Simulated assay, not measured.
Amino acid sequence: MTEPEPAYPTALGASTRDRITLLGRDLADDVMGTVGFGELAFWLATQRRPTAGQTRLFEAVLAALADHGFTPTAIAARLTYLSAPDSIQGALAAGLLGGGSRFLGVTEDCGRFLHDVLAAQDGVLPADDAGWDALALATVARRRGDGRFVPGLGHHVHKGGDPRTPRLFAIAAEEGLVGPHLQLFAAIGRVHPQVLGKTLPLNGAGVCGAALADLGLPLELLRGFALLARTAGLIGQLAEELRHPVANRIFLSVDLNNVSVPPDPYEPPALTDEPGGSRG
């Protein structure tokens, strides 16, 4: 008996001798020159075509996350290119690999955090700002009691307010896309001083996470969208490095200014018989 050929179903790209399809459309005739890249990225991730408003908000998020100057991710990309100019993919990968909890990762962290709070409401969400404020107040107080930060709250540079934040909220409002994640995050911005005793800005990257969650994008991919945006920024960083190189100066600044110090041997933690300790 002949074994059936294995099947690998996909609704994404597929090719025959004379045709390429993507998302069930003819790539050459229906997509190229017709569908913008931001719209296509959203469509590929959700397999549903976004509305014009959804595309506008999604692309605003991508723009907000594209480049932030000489961040560690940009420096890593430039230095890798200095070391291996024959490997543009290595330079881009080096920059993308630095997207974690301190840079870029807050987009996903905030989106997931807000989603978890909302999911715990069992479908019963506040009906007005007073209700959102009460939920936000309880959420911030609980995080404070647990000794944990609220993702997306605070910024190391924009102490008086992240300029991306009001613009993203405005675009979402203009397009009728202020959903529960953005509503909860806005409420956190209003009430957190009551718990923390100080006012912190809502981080633009956090607002991006809330907006992406409200757009119905998979939570597991939120950091991926931040990396998609930063890829464009890293290409810009490398293009500028070609024209106006600074990576060698960065390297030499460290290399020529390092200071030799005595060794600082690592001491392993002491073994203990106390509860939770290790036993030999």
Results as ranks from 00 to 15, higher is better:
residue 195 V to E: 02
residue 142 R to I: 03
residue 179 G to L: 11
residue 118 L to I: 10
residue 220 E to G: 14
residue 179 G to P: 04
residue 179 G to M: 10
residue 242 L to A: 13
residue 191 V to N: 04
residue 207 V to T: 08
residue 220 E to L: 10
residue 173 A to S: 15
residue 157 V to R: 15
residue 216 G to K: 03
residue 126 P to T: 09
residue 152 G to R: 03
residue 156 H to L: 15
residue 173 A to V: 02
residue 195 V to C: 04
residue 151 P to V: 09
residue 177 L to Y: 00
residue 225 F to G: 13
residue 230 R to H: 13
residue 189 G to R: 03
residue 233 G to S: 08
residue 238 L to C: 08
residue 227 L to P: 00
residue 248 N to G: 02
residue 188 I to E: 09
residue 221 L to W: 01
residue 169 F to S: 09
residue 226 A to I: 04
residue 167 R to E: 06
residue 186 A to Q: 11
residue 193 P to Q: 13
residue 196 L to T: 07
residue 174 E to N: 05
residue 119 A to T: 06
residue 117 V to E: 06
residue 141 A to Y: 02
residue 155 H to D: 09
residue 157 V to E: 13
residue 147 G to L: 03
residue 229 A to F: 05
residue 240 E to S: 13
residue 123 G to W: 10
residue 218 P to S: 07
residue 226 A to Y: 02
residue 132 W to D: 09
residue 202 L to E: 04
residue 192 H to Q: 02
residue 236 G to P: 00
residue 153 L to N: 07
residue 200 L to N: 07
residue 240 E to H: 13
residue 246 V to H: 12
residue 115 H to R: 14
residue 138 A to C: 00
residue 180 P to H: 05
residue 116 D to G: 01
residue 244 H to D: 11
residue 149 F to Q: 14
residue 115 H to E: 15
residue 196 L to W: 02
residue 115 H to I: 01
residue 176 G to Y: 04
residue 156 H to C: 06
residue 246 V to I: 14
residue 223 R to C: 05
residue 140 V to S: 01
residue 145 G to H: 01
residue 159 K to T: 12
residue 126 P to D: 02
residue 247 A to Q: 01
residue 131 G to C: 02
residue 176 G to N: 07
residue 145 G to C: 08
residue 185 F to E: 12
residue 194 Q to K: 13
residue 127 A to F: 00
residue 151 P to F: 04
residue 116 D to Q: 14
residue 219 L to R: 10
residue 212 L to G: 07
residue 155 H to Q: 11
residue 166 P to V: 08
residue 172 A to Q: 04
residue 181 H to E: 12
